[in-house]
Simulated scan of single mutants.
Amino acid sequence: MDELASPAAAGVYLLAAHPQWRESRVNRRLLDTARSVAGVQVQDLYGAYPDYDIDVPAEQARTAAARLVVLLHPVQWYSMPALMKLWLDDVLTHGWAYGRTGTALRGKDMWLVATTGGAEASYHPQGYNRYFFDAFLPPYEQTAALCGMRFLPPLLLHGAHRASEEQIDAHAAVFAERLRTHPNWAELNDLPACPACDVPEADRPPEH
C-alpha cells in the first residue's frame, strides 16, 4: 500500500490500476514518475485493495481534496481494469459525486493517462480495432461531466509493448511536466466548460 499523505496535502490525486505491475513497462514507469512529483498523492489500487474492499470514505476524502484526479491504467478490452471500474462504482455515489446534492467534485479536473498494446494505426476504421481511439472515450467523458468535472485531453501511449526506452523516457518526462504544471496548460484556456448534467429526482428514487 502506498504511504498516503493527508487529503489536504495533495493537489493531485492519482489512481493507478494495473493487475500485473511486474509485467508493466510503461505504466510502472509512470507510477514511479508520479511518486517523485511534489503535490501528487498516488494510490495503487491493486496494492491497496487486493481484496477489492474499497475504503469509500477515505477515497472520497482524498478525491474531494484534490483539484485534479488522474486515472492511470492500461486499456484492457477497450476500457479500464476491473478494480478501477469498481472504484468508480463505489466511490462516485449519488448524492456525493452527482445528483442535486452531489457536488463534491464540481469544478475539478479529470485526466486519463493510458496505454494501449495496439499501435495507433490499429485504432482506425481500416485497422483491426475498427474505430479511432476517441470512440472509446465517451464513458470517461460523461463520467466526468455527470460529476461536474472537466475532462482534460488524455495522455496516451499506443503500442506500449514495443515502445523503446527512449520513447518511454520522453513520455514519462511529458507526464511529469504535466503533473507539475497543472492547471497551467495552454490548451485548457480553450477547453469548453463542463456541460450541465442535471439528474431528475425521479431517475433516482429514494433507497429503502
Rank of each mutant, 00 (worst) to 15 (best):
G11E: 08
E23N: 15
S164H: 08
A121P: 12
Y78Q: 03
P206K: 08
T33I: 05
L188W: 12
Q76D: 10
F132I: 12
M84E: 00
L112E: 03
H182C: 08
T63P: 06
L68V: 12
L71Y: 03
Q126R: 11
L30H: 06
F175S: 01
P57A: 03
G39M: 06
H208F: 15
A202E: 13
Y128H: 10
E201K: 11
L4Q: 07
L86A: 13
R130P: 10
L45I: 06
A170I: 05
E3Q: 15
Y98P: 04
N129E: 10
R62M: 13
D89M: 14
P139F: 06
L71Q: 08
A202T: 09
A160T: 02
D2W: 15
R162N: 11
Q60R: 05
P205W: 04
A144V: 02
H158Q: 05
R28Y: 13
L152W: 11
L71V: 10
P206I: 07
A5H: 14
F175E: 00
E201R: 12
P192M: 09
G127D: 03
L83I: 07
L155W: 10
D90S: 15
V12W: 02
Y49V: 11
G99D: 00
L105N: 01
A176G: 02
V40E: 00
A48E: 11
A135Y: 09
G117E: 03
A173Q: 04
A38R: 04
A64T: 07
V113E: 00
K108Q: 05
Q142H: 12
Y98G: 00
A65K: 06
Q142W: 13
L71H: 03
S164A: 08
L4T: 08
L86T: 14
P125Q: 01
A82P: 05
F132V: 13
M84L: 10
A61T: 03
Q20T: 13
I168V: 11
A176F: 06
A9C: 09
L68T: 04
G118H: 06
G117H: 08
A196N: 07
H18K: 02
K108L: 15
A176I: 04
C197G: 13
H158G: 05
T93E: 09
Q43F: 14
R204S: 14
D190Q: 14
W87L: 00
S122P: 12
G95P: 02
Y140S: 05
Y131L: 13
P183F: 09
S24V: 10
A176L: 10
Y140G: 07
A16N: 07
R35E: 08
P192A: 07
D89P: 11
C197S: 14
V174S: 11
L4I: 15
P74I: 01
A34H: 02
A176Y: 06
F175N: 01
P154W: 12
P81A: 05
P153E: 11
M110V: 12
A8C: 10
Y46D: 03
D203G: 14
V174E: 02
P138R: 04
R67F: 13
Q126P: 08
S36W: 06
G107F: 05
L155F: 08
Y98C: 12
A121C: 11
L14W: 02
